[in-house]
Design a protein around this nucleic acid. Structure first.
Lengths: 148, 148
DNA sequence: CTCGATGCAAAATTTTTGCAGTCCC
DNA sequence: GGGACTGCAAAAATTTTGCATCGAG
């Protein structure tokens, strides 16, 4: 069943590429497959490693060139939590707005639904006469003992 | 009067350095003075330029080594809006929590009071059993025509 | 076949660091 | 005078890019 779900996403990805007139290459498929294998957030370098396990011809450059496509296709989300590198995660169709809680002790990232925020940010931006494109709420926190 | 206010902050900075057993050097003073001259957000490179106008012996390394001090002293705030470099701004004692609205058209950063958010983020993190260290709300938006 | 896509390595960009010399206290 | 501080340039670290080659359609 897991595999069926993954196949569903792969199909969506292939359709996205086709609709944009982009080519369906082994490398792009390997990178996307690799992204789906992560249960937690991953970095570009993590993704390169796992993609190479599927197709060892995948290069770092192609990973970096593919990430914007995956984001544009809405199948991957980018998470900038203020580190020098970015995190990514497969976007399993979570429709509601999510806030991130980042633990400074264990570096774990919790994502929690915060549907109210969407309204709040929109209201704030519209007061300035701007059109909202996106928003994020990040809480930096510290685990006392047993969070990890 | 502007100058008097600035002098007040400079005094605070000198006291901060002394209390930490750090030395009061011309370079550190020039960098801090330069930071106070900005009316808008600035980057490390902006700060280097302006600090060099006050003391041309200031090096890039010293700017980068001073920024953490200025942040720790609570006289400067760091703003990571997801670009590859960071923004900074003199922290003129704004006590309330502020959200940032970043325009993708003109790159302008608006800061608005959002005191409610502080409570919201805290509540969310505490539900996870974590202690809040800090938080930020960022809205990415687009100006239609006359915002800049 | 054609042109988009890739791999490689070099470049770019921001920030950090090692080291020898400087100057605050 | 001693050790914190600085400047310089090289190093880090992540991401981007130029170019020759490859391969999807």
């Amino acid at each position: 069943m897991e595999i069926k779900i993954a196949n569903q996403f792969v199909k969506t990805f292939r359709e996205f590429l086709s609709s944009k007139g982009l080519r369906i290459t082994n490398q792009r498929l390997a990178i996307f497959d690799a992204a789906l294998q992560f249960n937690v957030h991953f970095t570009a370098e993590d993704l390169l490693d796992k993609a190479r396990a599927l197709d060892d011809s995948v290069s770092r450059a192609t990973v970096y060139r593919s990430l914007p496509l995956l984001i544009e296709s809405n199948l991957i989300r980018e998470l900038d939590v203020g580190k020098d590198y970015k995190y990514y995660s497969a976007n399993m169709d979570s429709k509601t707005f999510q806030a991130q809680v980042i633990c400074v002790n264990c570096d774990k990232i919790f994502e929690i639904d915060a549907p109210f925020m969407e309204w709040y940010g929109k209201t704030v931006a519209e007061k300035l006469g701007l059109t909202v494109e996106g928003q994020k709420l990040q809480v930096t926190a510290r685990c006392d003992r047993d969070c990890c």
